[in-house]
Design a protein around this nucleic acid. Structure first.
Lengths: 111, 111
DNA sequence: ATTCTATATTGCAATATTACGATAAATATT
DNA sequence: AATATTTATCGTAATATTGCAATATAGAAT
């Protein structure tokens, strides 16, 4: 990403942008949707569902795990991934705050 | 981003990941928060508020505009940017759907 | 112990993002 | 018309992301 200036932004700004960035790739969205579709913590046959190699998917999973959007627990031979509701709620709350704040904007001005 | 395989994902997956990607940079979060703080469609003195050059901010604004998170209207000499509630709601709805779906996950399984 | 299966890591090539100086474009002001 | 002000674009260097083959690791099954 070129020269990063994240030192100049607040911790909260960096945190929320890191969460959003983790969601900012179609493969990672697809992985999340696959986990959702299973409605449970289904393990690593994600590879069979997506047109990506096993290392690539492992890497995307790692990125989602790094920001705590998913958590994985070892289940014998396989690993059981599932979504982390706390982190999703954090995102939800932030977007909700944006919306309620933005709605205060007077309609007779430009927006 | 290296070789992109967005053709293999659904339009919806690509759309939501593009929105998230646009929010995936602290400078763009800071720009949005600046617009929110003003509670109105305040124009281009964002440059004075952020530790980034004018071309860089212009580029970030363009990215936010490309995905319709903000809209800008020419206001004489300056440009009046404001948040687009429709797009924010789209993000909100998606995150909400993720959460409600994820909550169906049985608690006796791994998550 | 050896083999099988599932996942992670490493190394690297291809591509994308970020940032900014220089410059252009467009409107406002004098 | 000339100048100032505001925003956009171009060019380019630095860095990050993406994807995969090859390989490593770890537990299960034989």
């Amino acid at each position: 990403m070129g020269i990063s200036k994240s030192d100049f932004f607040t911790d909260e700004q960096n945190e929320i942008s890191n969460l959003m960035k983790a969601l900012g790739h179609p493969a990672r969205i697809a992985i999340i949707e696959f986990l959702l579709k299973k409605e449970a913590c289904i393990c690593g046959d994600i590879v069979n569902e997506l047109p990506l190699s096993q290392p690539t998917i492992s890497q995307h999973l790692k990125e989602l795990k790094n920001v705590n959007i998913i958590k994985g627990s070892v289940e014998g031979n396989t690993i059981c991934y599932c979504l982390n509701l706390d982190t999703l709620s954090k995102i939800q709350n932030y977007v909700q705050l944006m919306i309620t704040t933005a709605m205060k904007c007077k309609p007779d001005e430009c927006c």
